[in-house]
Write a protein that binds this DNA or RNA. Sequence first.
DNA 1: ACATATTTTATACTCATAGTATAATTTTTA
DNA 2: TAAAAATTATACTATGAGTATAAAATATGT
Lengths: 280, 280
Amino acid sequence: MNPKKQQIINAAHHLFIKKGYNASSIQDILDEAGISKGTFYNYFTSKSECLIALMESIAEDIRAARISIAFGESPSDLELFAKQLAIRICMNHEKNLFSLYESIFYSQDEELKVFGKSQYILELQWLSSRIVDLFGEQARPYALENAAIANGALQQLMHVWRFGTEQQLPLDELTAYIVHRMKQSVEIQLKDGKRFLSDGLLAQHQQLPTLSDSARQLQAFIEQAENADIKQLLTFLADELTAEQPRNAVLDSVLTSLGKNTESEAELQILLEQVWRQIK
Amino acid sequence: MNPKKQQIINAAHHLFIKKGYNASSIQDILDEAGISKGTFYNYFTSKSECLIALMESIAEDIRAARISIAFGESPSDLELFAKQLAIRICMNHEKNLFSLYESIFYSQDEELKVFGKSQYILELQWLSSRIVDLFGEQARPYALENAAIANGALQQLMHVWRFGTEQQLPLDELTAYIVHRMKQSVEIQLKDGKRFLSDGLLAQHQQLPTLSDSARQLQAFIEQAENADIKQLLTFLADELTAEQPRNAVLDSVLTSLGKNTESEAELQILLEQVWRQIK
DNA sequence: ACATATTTTATACTCATAGTATAATTTTTA
DNA sequence: TAAAAATTATACTATGAGTATAAAATATGT
């Protein structure tokens, strides 16, 4: 990321937290970042584009944090899932960004709306796939619905907590509770088969990529890798994935090292998470 | 309501649906309503105050509709509750007002935010009290939590539906499903006692008013009643409530007549609903 | 019917902010 | 060190919120 662009995003971030998005004028951002108008419009065509860049960078942080705590653990670990849920809340809370996410959703700005929608769908799809990790393939028909409901429950319980008390939200307790309810719900649904949403509603059934698919995708990243250590790790990963009998324990440790590295781009992280799922 | 004020609200309503709140300028409202700027500022000090007036009038419509389908039915009827849930969705949807409600929530406008919060709390309190109606006093500790979660589930399932398909939302199916899940949840909680929110979080335990409380409150409305028929019905109601043995069937039918009358003010409607609960 | 009070209109004004344009200056790069 | 790119300062246009006010229209009480 261009450092000037990053500087603007940081300033915007700071301001949006302090005064909110709507209340921050572009002039405020210029002052905060100590740049002139021309520079701003050199990198962004509008305030909303700047917001999108900010939110994208935060989404990447969340993804990285979720992945970095996952490697070395089992994808079907309920506690891990609860922690991953907490990460989003925690990061957004810490950065006071709920306001942004929610105000975007129904914004009048078409570009923002589309962006918000895509972020939302990504989150639900991530949740859904994790639910399948947790409860097995049989839970797939109920995954999207439970993802949506868990999302709603999280949001609402947080609202009510915020309105009802000054106390600090007990986040781990909340996410554990959400996971507990989700488990109950899925178990009941596996018995009675009742649901409202069909699982294929948001996307045509995306078929699971194979290990060699992942290895092939890795090649692209190996070529453009700048850091030699990372290149080495990625190359090892790609080789090992195509081996007769991939040594999962070694793969896991390599993934963990790579996951801790926050430099890597979003696409690579997503690919690494895919590999993590595959080898479990 | 002053007809000019109503005319402005109607114009704003129309515009907000067509173009959204933020995208509608005050000038647009003036043009739509065919009035001049001075008149607008005679009734409202800002656009957001106009929005609040609009939303208040819609909230009143929702309340009235919910009450009018309730009289004559049992408060513990799950299907009635599902229908009452559908009313809010339906009215907002029809009027395309979800955008408004949700954008208000995190608006930068302090006045709007406070209003949105109070509306939200009112809705949760209504839901909570209905949950107690449905599942008995024993469900009270879990009422607020289930109200919040049902609210979140409704919202999220609607979002996903909207994003995933062009088809018309099967509203009755959705509300029935929400009620079904709520029933399961409450039943489980009555056994295992698990919950996240305490029921008293939003308000100190409000003690139930007695029939004679209601009768006393009715007096005020009787005095200011303009329509003779309504005055007659209210007077009968107040007398009957203080009788040794109120004839519930008659009360119910009188309530039904009064409930159908949409002229009555919000406070009266709330009082009537309270009476309806008391006599069941 | 008339005088008075009120509501409404038309218009012009201030102020804040988004976004454009451009020439001058600074920094980077080759 | 010269050319290219980025940055700045500044001025400009346009839009929209909100205020002010005098004139016109309407309502109200007697």
